[in-house]
């Protein structure tokens, strides 16, 4: 803590998902903002325990979907009615009916792209390096241990040690950047 720029954060280890959940509740109530939990598997109810707000990914999906639908309709109108009018099967030059399957597919495609890239952007991915990966103990986060890391950039980082101790952490380590 003498050189905050060098310290990434405090890493606390827990044995069970329930202990992690209880500790997450304490961190949430203590008002930390720059922290995260790590577990080998998803834990139902953790979003609430961490006080996470609703994800913004849905808006990327929605925007992608709207773009896809509009693109499909416009493209077919432009190609078949405007740019190169062509009668196919005695049908009108343009109707939303036959433009629908293509627009629908594009809605799905661009919704999926919106979701994928939106998620990546919100998670700040791709990211080549995370200081936690240097920590030997942290490797068990993908096996049988549960972790909380409060980052040094958190305004309340000064109290992190006591919060994690009172939350029942077995081991607390400082992670260097």
């Amino acid at each position: 803590m003498s050189a905050p720029a060098k310290t990434h954060g405090l890493l606390a280890e827990f044995d069970t998902p329930a202990d992690l959940m209880a500790a997450a509740l304490k961190c949430r109530d203590a008002g930390y903002t720059k922290w995260d939990v790590y577990s080998p598997f998803p834990i139902h109810g953790m979003d609430d325990a961490m006080g996470l707000k609703k994800s913004l990914v849905g808006w990327f999906t929605f925007t992608g979907g709207c773009t896809g639908f509009t693109t499909g309709m416009t493209m077919i109108w432009f190609m078949n009615k405007f740019d190169y009018p062509l009668v196919v099967g005695g049908k009108p030059l343009f109707t939303p009916l036959y433009a629908f399957p293509v627009s629908y597919e594009l809605t799905i495609l661009l919704s999926a792209f919106g979701t994928l890239f939106g998620l990546a952007a919100l998670c700040r991915l791709p990211k080549w390096y995370n200081p936690l990966f240097k920590n030997e103990r942290f490797k068990r986060a993908s096996n049988d241990k549960f972790f909380i890391c409060i980052e040094a950039v958190d305004p309340k980082f000064g109290h992190a040690q006591e919060t994690l101790q009172s939350a029942g952490a077995k081991i607390i380590e400082t992670v260097e950047d």
Binding site: A22, H44, G45, D48
Partner: peptide, 15 residues
């Protein structure tokens, strides 16, 4: 109990 947040120390009972 799907979304129930267990109290600390009840971990063994839950899993």
């Amino acid at each position: 109990t799907h979304h129930e947040i267990p109290a600390p120390g009840q971990a063994a009972a839950h899993h």
